[in-house]
Design a protein around this nucleic acid. Structure first.
Length: 473
RNA sequence: GGUCCCGUCGUCCAGAGGCCCAGGACGCCGGCCUUUCAAGCCGGAAACGCCAGUUCGAAUCUGGUCGGGACUGCCA
């Protein structure tokens, strides 16, 4: 049978990077084997599921470039791929299991069950030792699966190897709530069977639930899929990745100026590697090399710094036209207004130089506002460090004179005349150029000087140098 | 508490008995380049948690120990 894998997010929140990483591995596995990647929505928790979250999740998946072959949004032979549309199916299975004796109704009140759990806790045993079919049978309440006590359940995990669970350590878990809705265990297991899922690759947090899913599948009369439990993602403090660690949802990364290719690449190296040497690689390379058997067993710390570095790699690798197109919104946001055609050409002139200096897209905007907005105030540190020195007025005067005399206003011409300044003034290059930089860009940190001056234009440049000169008195 | 998982540089990976006095990447430190900032290039510090055992030989196998984590819901 050909490979069929799925990704089954719950629309109870935004797309988390951990979920995205699991989706990515499933996608790579499907693409590598020429199989199908299916998107199912696990929305059995009606209280917390919303269509807004569902939309957000679909959008994030598309943004990352994980296209699915069947599922919500694209359809397929199995209906809506939304669990809330299949409640009748889960109820049907649940009653079949009750009829066959594999499951039973339980109407015990929650406080009674709670005391059983406390008893187990007190005796140092798994709750499974007490959460069992009561002597008195019921015909209402929740439905629990009766765990066969004969043999242990062995999970043959693709990444972890053989993991064994003793039957008494598995409780008779609820498959159908008293309100008739299925629990995650039931819905997920039924869907995996109905959708012919061959491999279930999911977070390691679900490993303890896997024996339950295996037993449920078998009780339904089917053979369970192959499982692969992926290592979890941690924050830099070694704890489970959460909001405390900054951005955790995919859309936040998108908004922060990360590129989907970079996020894809970074997520792929968390728990997997292309080979011993390569860190930056394409989707095609990843698809070619990916195998679930190569996935690491140990949890990975999500490192925003490395992601940022990788984003810079991708920013620099893209074509200059693409970069220009991509950063337009960021530039206009920094400038505070839409740019005219002429202004945009000014930006395009130095865009390649900005591109080299950009890791996150919004940074590009900050680098070029000087091209479009007047300098209301100079960067304080830059001014005190560069402009407060002796000889600066002379430098500005000399620069002004030289540039005023230029017939052609382009970077080579500007450079040619300014290059003569240090010698004619008898000062070092830094002392000659830094004051001009501050005068023209407002800061001692900027894109390369000659190109910046060229892009700014003659009138604005001369005006700004004049203003800085005036400020110096 | 119980069940289960994990344990190589600070971090992400490579390593499936000798190729490893452990390799690549981020970060860090130093240098080169340079008008600033980046980028680039060169170099450096930095790890097999610990203890036993198996073996001629162990990061790789086994046991123990310590540490971390997940789960322990009519949440997924």
């Amino acid at each position: 049978m050909s490979v069929r894998v799925r990704m089954a997010p719950s629309p109870t929140g935004t797309m988390h990077v951990g979920t995205a990483r699991a989706a990515l591995f499933n996608w790579l596995f499907a693409r590598h084997h020429g199989g199908a990647f299916i998107l199912r929505i696990d929305d059995t928790d009606r209280e917390r599921s919303t269509s807004e979250f569902e939309k957000e999740i679909l959008g994030s998946l598309r943004w990352l470039g994980l296209d699915w072959d069947e599922g919500v949004g694209v359809g397929g032979p199995h209906g809506s791929y939304r669990q809330s549309d299949r409640l009748h199916r889960y109820r049907e299975i649940a009653s079949e299991l009750v009829e066959s004796g594999a499951a039973y109704y339980d109407d015990r009140p929650s406080d009674q069950l709670e005391s059983l759990r406390q008893l187990a806790q007190k005796e140092g045993r798994h709750p499974g030792h007490y959460i069992r079919r009561p002597d008195i049978s019921a015909d209402s309440g929740v439905i629990r699966l009766a765990i066969p006590q004969e043999a242990p359940v062995v999970v043959d995990d693709i990444v972890r190897g053989s993991v064994s669970f003793e039957a008494p350590d598995i409780d008779d878990f609820v498959i159908l709530r008293s309100n008739g809705t299925p629990t995650y265990h039931l819905a997920s297991t039924v869907d995996d069977v109905d959708y012919d899922i061959t491999h279930v690759a999911r977070g390691e947090d679900l490993l303890p639930s896997t024996p339950k899913h295996i037993l449920l599948t078998r009780a339904m009369g089917y053979v369970e899929p192959l499982y692969a439990h992926l290592p979890l993602l941690f924050g830099t403090d070694g704890r489970k990745l959460s909001k405390r660690h900054g951005a955790t949802s995919l859309s936040e990364f998108r908004d922060d100026g990360f590129l989907p290719d970079a996020v894809f690449n970074y997520l792929a190296i968390l728990g997997w590697s292309l080979d011993a040497e390569t860190t930056v690689f394409s989707r095609e390379q990843a698809i070619e090399a990916f195998e679930l058997t190569d996935v690491s067993k140990s949890p990975a710390v999500f490192d925003p710094e490395k992601l940022t570095w990788m984003n810079g790699e991708y920013v620099r690798a893209m074509g200059s036209e693409e970069f220009t197109r991509l950063v337009r919104p960021d530039v206009e946001r920094s400038v505070g207004r839409p740019l005219s055609h002429d202004e945009w050409e000014r930006f395009e002139e130095i865009a390649p130089l900005v591109q080299e200096r950009t890791k996150l897209l919004p940074e590009a905007g900050d680098q070029v506002t000087f091209l479009f907005n007047d300098i209301d105030e100079y960067d304080e540190k830059s001014w005190s460090k560069v402009m407060a020195r002796k000889g600066v007025p002379a430098v500005l005067d000399e620069g002004l004179t030289r540039m005023s005399a230029l017939e052609v206003w382009d970077a080579p011409s500007i450079e040619a005349t300014l290059r003569e300044m240090p010698e004619s003034l008898g000062i070092g290059a830094g002392k000659a150029f830094q004051p001009l930089r501050v005068a023209v860009t407002g800061s001692s940190i900027s894109p390369p000087l000659f190109e910046s001056i060229s892009a700014l234009g003659r009138e604005r440049t001369l005006d700004r140098i004049g203003r800085a000169r005036q400020k110096l008195g």
